[in-house]
Design a protein around this nucleic acid. Structure first.
Length: 467
RNA sequence: GGUCCCAUCGUCUAGUGGUUUAGGACGCCGGCCUCUCACGCCGGUAACACGGGUUCGAAUCCCGUUGGGAUCACCA
């Protein structure tokens, strides 16, 4: 069996959005699972709309997702000579011809076709004129009018098209740039692509591309069209559906693992399994389990998956992902093992890294800032004795293990006659400034003796100041 | 409008003719756990679009209807 070669060919006219990312992921996964190759190609023949920023954004998104490529990136704009050569082949073999019809005329014909309820088609004015190359001439493919073309799709099954539906489409613009359907075919041929996994919106292009392969005498790739991803209103994904670019999710505090997991499950399944890491996916991914019906992007589920991945990730990993979010808040991180420990207390209660960063602030601040209501409610005179007893007890402790702390608190409970809950809240506020936080014992252990004693003493000072 | 595609809980999906009172997950609603908030655990809610066939038997196969979507550029 020949090596599987897949590709991802984004056009750099905007950011990489989640739908495109899923297509890239499927191709990448398939190549990886089959020990094949994955090619990245930038389709920038539309000079007016392609930008360098978009190219960079796509690289950045792919890099964040951990989708790497074996060949490329190839830029279509740098392959113009190759397209020219293939155009010439097609013209020489009489499979293509020059056409000088004006865009206005073409448009009129198209409109009248639609008005008559027909498929809009080029009327063939120049088809047999044997025109020579000229400045304003485009090159059209001479398409068969009769017969049928079957697209053998490994996901959707066979799809039959009447060739009469296909017109003499343009393969080269008057400015010499190749058109999409043609460039794709030439690239896929010359890059050895044998497996084309792409969005459902490309099925109608496929018969045209097949015709090109035939005219060029080349072997067809295997096609697989993956169902679309829609927004909540069942229309094409766009900005009005909320965040759609991959990097937006990065910025909102999502783990790439979570997006990958979510995206792969949109249209692909493995029994009842829900949680996947990349290595599992490479082992388990297959085309036969890609569904055929479109799906809707559900950010709620992505969120919950993100929470799952935050819980499951090794603490060192979480710390690395978390760091930039803290830096964004002007907190400099020097001690990664401290950050890992912090993450360990927060990973069960954070749905995003952004949330986790918020929750982590109290660990990193040199001075606790009290939430007004929290301080008013819990840092009152009646908490004074209890906090100072606790300081005494904690000072005697060698290490802050769970058991040690429990004993210390028990003594404070005995001395004050208070229940644990009554002690915990003031301590929590003293240590974190808030009424909501990870468990008291966890916090104390992670903060360490020095910080804990200092913060408790500061709380005493605060209470004093309110006398 | 032509062509093509799709149709299981609100959403993602399992299911490939009988093992199904249709399973899991998210969400939602209860409860338990508990030092706060979470996590976790337990329970509940909710679907085979409709109509015809085929078959002893259909969510599963066929046809039609309805609904949704994609596509028809000198965009990709």
């Amino acid at each position: 069996m020949e090596q599987i070669i897949t590709r991802f060919p984004p056009s750099p006219t905007g950011y990489l959005h989640v739908g495109g990312a899923r297509t890239a992921l499927f191709n990448w996964l398939y190549a990886r699972s089959k020990n094949g190759r994955f090619v990245l190609r930038i389709e920038d023949t539309d000079i007016a709309r392609s930008t360098k920023e978009s190219v960079d954004a796509i690289f950045k998104a792919l890099d964040w997702l951990g989708i790497d490529w074996d060949d490329g990136p190839f830029y279509q704009s740098e392959r113009l000579d190759i397209y020219k050569e293939y155009i010439q082949k097609l013209i020489d073999s009489d499979n293509a011809y020059y056409c000088t019809c004006s865009p206005e005329k073409i448009k009129r014909v198209r409109e009248s076709n639609i008005a008559l309820g027909q498929t809009p088609k080029y009327d063939g004015t120049c088809r047999d004129k044997r025109l020579k190359k000229s400045d304003k001439a485009v090159v059209r493919f001479r398409a068969d009018n009769f017969g049928t073309t079957i697209v053998e799709d490994i996901i959707k099954g066979n799809i039959l098209f009447q060739n009469s539906e296909i017109d003499d489409f343009i393969i080269q613009r008057s400015d010499g740039m190749p058109m999409y359907n043609f460039a794709v075919v030439v690239d896929d041929i010359t890059m050895g692509i044998n497996t084309v996994l792409r969005g459902d919106d490309h099925v109608s292009n496929t018969p045209k591309q097949i015709a090109l392969y035939r005219a060029l005498g080349c072997l067809l790739p295997v096609y697989g069209h993956v169902p679309m991803v829609f927004g909540k209103d069942r229309t094409r994904l766009s900005k009005r559906h909320g965040a759609m670019s991959v990097t937006a999710y990065k910025d909102m505090g999502y783990m790439p693992e979570a997006l990958i997991n979510y995206l792969v499950r949109l249209g692909w399944s493995h029994g009842d399994d829900e949680f996947f890491l990349k290595d599992d996916l490479i082992k388990k991914f297959n085309i036969k389990n890609i569904g055929i019906s479109p799906s809707i992007f559900d950010s709620e589920k992505l969120l919950s998956l993100n929470a799952d991945h935050i819980k499951a990730a090794p603490l060192e990993r979480t710390a690395i992902c978390l760091k930039p979010f803290l830096e964004e808040k002007n907190v400099e991180i020097t001690d990664m093992s401290y950050l890992s420990a912090i993450a360990g207390t927060l990973n069960k209660r954070s749905k995003t890294l952004l949330e986790m960063a918020d929750g982590a602030m109290f660990y990193l601040e040199s001075k606790v800032v009290y939430d007004k209501k929290a301080a008013e409610k819990f840092l009152k005179l009646n908490a004074y004795d209890c906090l100072s007893f606790l300081i005494d007890q904690l000072k005697q402790l060698e290490s802050f293990t769970q058991e040690n702390q429990e004993e210390a608190f028990k003594k404070v409970m005995d001395m004050t006659g208070l229940k644990f809950g009554k002690i915990a809240q003031p301590v929590r506020v003293a240590l974190t400034g808030k009424t909501v936080s990870p468990g008291i014992f966890e916090i104390i252990e992670v903060l360490g003796k020095e910080r804990v004693i200092k913060r408790l003493e500061e709380a005493l000072l605060y209470i004093d100041s309110k006398r």
